[in-house]
Amino acid sequence: MPICFGISFTKTFMNQARSLVHVYSDGSVNVSTGAVEMGQGVNTKMLQVAAQVFSIDASRVRLNTTNTFRIANTSPSAASATADLNGRATQIACEAILERLKEVALLELNLKGVTIELKDEWVYADGLQTELGWKQLVMAAFVRRISLSEHGHYATPEINFDLKKEKGHPFAYHVYGTAIITTTIDCLRGTYEMDSVKVVHDFGASMNVAIDKGQCEGGIVQGIGWMTMEEIIYDNEGRLRSNALSTYKVPDVYSAPKEIQIEFLHTTNDNLAIFNSKAVGEPPLMYGIGAYFALRNAIKAFNPNANPAYSSPMTPEKVLMALYERK
């Protein structure tokens, strides 16, 4: 099952974000963005951005709540683009502070015309470590009345879409991948197990392998649930009949695939993702579509006459009927 998913809000104007970064006089850092943490790990990625740009230990950075008095006019955390948009805004804010700090370092070190870098909490001049550390540098900037705060704004470049022609370049980039899904059906009962899901997924250059892998695994299971066991039922009067966890079944640990393997396709093509680490929220869900067709193939292997309607979810009831369908 191959997938391809475009990253960006398709409403171009929504592809903007802001981040507010404060460096306190003791060298600790506080970051607020428009990103909402909902288990996807976006705050961890935001923290990584700040720590990486400043080249400081992650423990110095704290992520703040998402608040409309600190960050205004936010786009929702959606479209898989939250880390890209808010990460870029955070990067812009941190880089602006960093530039000011570098100028302070030149003054503090009495140097001119050398390249200042920050590496692992130390100031380097032309590649050589100096005696100036992160904390001293920040305090020096504060004493010199240099702003240690910045509000970064990012708007995705290049994207556009012409609604009249229904043509354009709506996506910053696409995410690709392929999954191989195997399943075994109990041909007496119509129940089934997902034996394995083996994926090669295009992460670009993942900035957090554990989180990205978690997003993939969760997406796959949720996608399989949609295609197989989760069955929403409204009656003809528009009343929801599958209105509780007793009547609406989502995959639990027993019905999740017995094995999920994720191979990272590491690509170096320049893209608009944060640090080239491609968006990962939504795309893996679509591997789940493959589960539907794996079941269909298994049914036909047992009963070549079966031709169930192309209608998802492929519940065990539908599987059972198809297993014994006659032409």
Partner: peptide, 8 residues
């Protein structure tokens, strides 16, 4: 800018 065949 495709990685489809690479993944496959």
């Amino acid at each position: 800018v495709s990685e489809a065949s690479e993944c496959w």
